[in-house]
Design a binder for these strands. Structure first.
Lengths: 337, 337
DNA sequence: CCCGAAAATGGTAGCGCTATCATTTCCAGA
DNA sequence: TCTGGAAATGATAGCGCTACCATTTTCGGG
């Protein structure tokens, strides 16, 4: 499609500039700029004239030029491992809800749980000069950390609370979450503990907390089932295949927990009605709505992903705010364990 | 946090420019620019020298300036009703997977199913001069359509196939989906049909198709249960409360379908084992993984959200490609109906 | 009716980069 | 050794806007 054919004014199709508006309204360019950004300091007579010209021309300010001139891009870079994971989607939603009303745009990028890609992606984000970076997790490569530091902008790491974040962090203690679930299993008489999840740092922290609690309680050494795919069904099958004797499973997210419960049902290890004491206890993480709808209802470590996003946005915009926020988590016990 | 304190070089902390690199390497600025963008046309000797300077200074190109000079932003605006909906998250993921490797960034914005907000958001997106716009659904306001046309860039509408899209569309026929489900219910002997969903245009198209099929088959006039919240549980409760006598329900998405099945179970209308012929047939839309894990497994209109995203990205980048792609859908029959 | 301060508007000079030409350097072939 | 065209590099002029300061206009109070 060529530009001419889609313009409503076939004559001087090129996208109108602030200069064009100024000429049409008979004012200087800077006045147009003021009408757009600070209408209050322009007399209402001129303002009306300018607004009229803007409407007639269909002028849309060029923020690229504006950003260059003002050194403010009104944008925030957001780096997630993947968006096709409802739990991160909630966080993105939350931060977007705070940022957009303030006129900030979200530049979204995915690292795909890949270290090299994270570094590349971070460079790409930074080249757009966002006013802050918000990421799920902490940067993994030294390169990435270095770039972030040099950028001199707020950097908010979420979903974990590193000892020494580049700048700020909003999240919860993943290690603790593992401990809490481990203890809960011990207290309810479970002995053969299993952890299913990926091998990213957050999952690993949960795993460490989980073993720690199991050891302290004198249980069998917990086993870990590593999952590559993002599929709940896959996670369920993997656990049944590699640790069929497990009597308690901590799944790194609710999707895995549901996948496992579904596999257990298919293997006829669930009984027709949710048992008071299930043969295999399962606890997930995230508190997806699905978990409440499933039968048995899924016990979980509840995390408020949207709240993390909102808090992260606030730290990103205000460097004066405290640089570390622990939003905590909550163990929610339902039928699954 | 102030900029000085976080720079690795406390001396001349300000973010280095291309000019600084040029001076350090003893070349002209344009040569640095070429090393960054087209390394192949620079002699290897100078290239090495420049790359060295870049590394030493930690230079990150300023794409804002580059975009202004070249009139290419290497960015695509993406407008979704909400990202906290796994089905759209898949589409965003898909398009991002195509766009990022090509050096394009995704500027993500949410309209929240709100017409006015859609128009505002579109203006904000356009002011960043993206090279294309990809949106879920078609623009709703005349204003929005006008702005998009004037922008003179590719615009891809997804998840529906309007008669006259602004530019391009990738999706499937929502009306047809309704027809297919309606016919299926008729064929399997259902009579009291209900549709649960929102009142956005896509849902409404499905609804229209659904009634059409029901009328043709001579069934009772279908009823429509309108849902505001995005919650499956809410949808389930609403259907049970307002149309308790329904014997077949088409849910506008799988989350609603699962919410309804869960409510039916709680109301003891599901039986212990999935029945061969369920009392109430339920068909969802989207084919979430959860639907396959649930019991009963959820019948659904399968849509490949990621594929829609990938195809949309391709149309966005290449105006020569066909402007209308019907990716279709598939009725997947499982235990729920 | 004048004065001075506030309100309103404008001129100038870049922001950091790239497009578009030069211009210079290099080197194979005569 | 000289030539000519390709390869490599550079000078210049903006891109469309805003920061900063200067200038003009307005208007209430003496």
């Amino acid at each position: 499609m060529d530009m001419e054919s889609r313009s409503s004014d076939p004559l001087k199709s090129p996208v109108p500039t602030l200069m064009a508006v100024a000429r049409m309204a008979g004012v200087s360019p800077i006045t147009v700029s003021r009408v757009v950004r600070r209408p209050d300091i322009v007399s209402s007579a001129t303002r009306l004239r300018v607004e009229d010209a803007i409407r007639k021309l269909g002028y849309v300010p060029n923020m690229v030029a504006g950003s260059l001139a003002s050194a403010r891009t009104k944008s925030v870079g957001v780096l997630v491992p993947t968006i096709a994971n409802s739990i991160f989607a909630d966080t993105v939603q939350g931060l977007s809800d705070v940022l957009e009303p303030l006129g900030f745009s979200v530049i979204l990028a995915q690292s795909g749980y890949d270290d090299q890609r994270e570094a590349r992606t971070l460079a790409a984000l930074l080249s757009r000069r966002p006013e802050a970076i918000i990421m799920i997790g902490a940067p993994v490569t030294a390169e990435g950390i270095e770039m972030l530091k040099r950028a001199g902008i707020p950097v908010v790491e979420t979903w974990e609370l590193p000892e020494a974040p580049v700048d700020a962090a909003v999240g919860f203690d993943n290690h603790d979450a593992g401990v809490v679930v481990g203890r809960h299993f011990a207290k309810t008489g479970r002995r053969r503990l299993v952890f299913v999840g990926g091998d990213d740092r957050r999952a690993t922290q949960r795993w460490h907390g989980f073993i720690e609690a199991a050891r302290k309680a004198g249980l069998d050494e917990p086993r870990r089932v590593l999952i590559e795919w993002q599929s709940g069904a896959g996670a369920g099958a993997a656990v049944l295949a590699s640790t069929p004797d497990a009597d308690a499973v901590f799944a790194a997210n609710d999707a895995y927990a549901i996948g496992l419960l579904s596999a257990l049902r298919r293997a006829n290890r669930l009984g027709p009605e949710p048992a008071a004491v299930p043969e295999v206890a399962v606890v997930g993480l995230g508190d997806l709505e699905m978990g409440r709808l499933f039968s048995p209802t899924v016990s979980t470590i509840r995390i408020d992903g949207a709240a993390i996003g909102r808090a992260a946005a606030e730290l990103a915009l205000d460097p004066a705010k405290p640089r570390r926020i622990d939003l905590g988590f909550e163990l929610i016990l339902r039928e699954s364990g």
